[in-house]
Structure formats: C-alpha cells, structure tokens
Amino acid sequence: MVTAAPTLMETRPAAPVLPPRPPAAAEPGPAAPASALAPAAETLIDIRQVDFFYGASQALHDVSLAIEHKKVTAFIGPSGCGKSTLLRCLNRMNDLIDGTRVARGTIRIRGVDIHQPDVDVIELRKRIGMVFQKSNPFPKSIYENITYGLRLQGVTNRARLDEVVEKSLRGAALWDEVKDRLDASGLGLSGGQQQRLCIARAIAVEPEVILMDEPCSALDPVATAKVEELIQELRSRYTIVIVTHNMQQAARCSDKTAFFYMGRLVEYADTRNIFTNPANPQTEAYVSGRFG
C-alpha cells in the first residue's frame, strides 16, 4: 500500500499491512447481524444516514453502512435502487452532474468527511479509483492510457513510467496480451481487454479503493470470468466496491453484500448470509429471483 501523498487522510496513521489472504477465499465469518451499522474491525469508508437528491427526486434514503478495509463489498439490487448513485458518491463523481446534492448525512473515509468544502476532490479521486460500466479507454495508445494518471501528477521519468505500465498491466492480467503493442490504440482492444485496461489504468495511480460500476455488464461470459479472476487477485491489495446486477457474480466475488431497494439499504451482511440465510424477506425474494 503506497499512500504517496498523505494530505487528505492523515487523521489516522496508515493502516497496518494485512497479510495477503488466499485468493479465492470467500470467508464465511461469523453471521453478522442484519443491522446496517454493524461495527467492523477495520472500517475504511463509513457512510451514515445519507440522503441524496437528483434535483427534486430523492435517490437515497437514510443509507448507512460501513465498508471494510481490503474486502470486496458488492452492492446489489434492481435498476434504479440507488446502488450506482451511492458508489459515485464515494469519489464525488456526482459533482459532475448538475443539480445533485447530499442533503443529509456524512461519508467518512478514514474519518475524513469527504463532502467538507476544504477537501481536495482531485486528491480524493486519486486515492479512490473507478472502473465504469462501459469500458472507456482514452483514444490514445495503451501506454498513454496507463500513464495518464501519473503524468497528471507530473511524473515524466520514462523508466518509472515503463515500470508502472508493466506492473499495472500485469496487475490487470493484460500484460501478456498487449506487451508487444503498447503503442497501439487502446480502442483497438476487445471489450474485455478494454475493461481490464481501464482497471490497469485505475491501479496505475495506486489508489486505496477501487470502485467498480457494473464492470462486466457489457462483457461476454469469458471476458467476465477474466475480470472476476482479476478481482480475486486484487482483493488482497485494494478495498473494492463493486456494483453488479449479476447475483452469481456478487456471490462469487464479494465478502460482504449490500442489498438496496427503492433507494434504501435493505440488508447488509456477509455475502454468504445474504445468499443463504437472508434476514429480510425482500432480500430473500430478490436473491432467489422472485422479483427484480
């Protein structure tokens, strides 16, 4: 974990480095209570009682949950339930949309309220990477795509950039496929490769958290499997929050799952519990495919 510029989140010393866990471990853990305010051993992002509005329409109602450090948290729920909105609140991407506001509540990352006016949103977004629903590599070469974030930070050392490109592409399991054509356009890759390129681009700036907004919804099953494998590899180094429509995916990849419905958090618990023994009948109805 490299926290190069500890300006934002200095309230707490850097988290101790956890020993890498075995990749495919979906730890059962003790059955967490269905309460959204379940105290976690290591809470990285603490969301409390958030109300969110698009203009006049309310998208989130009183959402509270704690996202744990170095775990994969999945947000599930039917379309329009507010899961993507919450995800985009975490790196303040909603700021780009006119007329949006957090009306109530706080989102704290390592204790810092990210909606305070003196928070540097640029710095925040460097620390919280994001992968979008539709792969969106820049119309530039693969190399330039990966180095974009670093160049923004003023890194020009060629050797350093080369090193980061290789490391990020290896980290995104793409190196072997593209190492001979780093100067080719990122748009020339296949859909799955493009999405992994976007993940590589996100991890190149060494964020602490990676937000994934339905990263596989536009991919075929083979590409989806590769991205999921990648998530398994990344979970040891990053805190990952993933929004998905695919319940199998949530079950396969995540440690904790939050189920949203109509802008409210219905249930938040260990993934295993959500899928095998949900506390809320609505959750059960959704995960068993009876609605949604």
Binding site: I122, R125, M130, F132, K134, Y148, G149, L152, R201
Partner: peptide, 19 residues
C-alpha cells in the same frame, strides 16, 4: 465517458479539456 474517466483519475477540469 472520456471525461468521467479522466476526472476519476484525478484530473482537473483544465487538464481534462487539454489532454
């Protein structure tokens, strides 16, 4: 999507426009 990707990587508005 280009704009969002750029912002998500910590680019300022001006950097996004120019680059």
């Amino acid at each position: 999507a280009f704009k969002e990707a750029s912002f998500a990587l910590g680019a300022t508005r001006l950097q996004t426009v120019i680059k």
